[in-house]
């Protein structure tokens, strides 16, 4: 198990998913920040800029599209990569325009494979 100093923010409205993903990342030596929805995500992004954002689609409150627009406006977040982790099909996500941004580097469908997720995060961090 390799050591990491990278920070990953996980945004998901489902507590069990949030917990599971954090357990996996923690066990793999990532620093994690948790957010339950878009508003919390934005608030926490003001305090700290993570290397990777693991983002759910279809959450209550702020829509993912609106959240992405806010992120695009903030120049501090220019280096942050986004990986979608969602139960939505990638074609549907594309249809609502979520895959246009260059910072979106991967799309993982739920229920996800742990190995697939860890590979995606590692790959995203290496892109920096």
């Amino acid at each position: 198990m390799s050591t990491h100093t990278a920070t990953v923010m996980v945004v998901d409205d489902e507590p069990d998913v949030l917990l599971s993903v954090n357990q996996i990342l923690d066990a793999n030596n990532y620093r994690t920040i948790k957010a339950r929805d878009g508003y919390e995500c934005l608030a926490k992004l003001k305090e700290e800029v993570p290397d990777v954002l693991l983002l759910d689609i279809m959450m209550p409150g702020l829509t993912t599209k609106e959240l992405l627009n806010e992120i695009e406006k903030d120049s501090r977040l220019a280096g942050m990569k986004i990986i979608f982790l969602t139960a939505i099909h990638s074609l549907e996500a594309e249809e609502i325009g979520l895959l246009n941004s260059k910072r979106v580097v991967d799309f993982i469908e739920k229920p996800f494979s742990v190995r697939r997720m860890l590979e995606a995060v590692e790959k995203a961090i290496k892109l920096e």
Binding site: L19, Q23, P111
Partner: peptide, 23 residues
């Protein structure tokens, strides 16, 4: 439905994988 059916599957599968991988 798709979302709702998958949502419970997700932590189940994640936790099972963690168990299998020795987490």
């Amino acid at each position: 439905t798709s979302h709702e059916l998958r949502t419970p599957l997700t932590p189940m599968k994640a936790q099972l994988q963690m168990l299998r991988e020795g987490y």
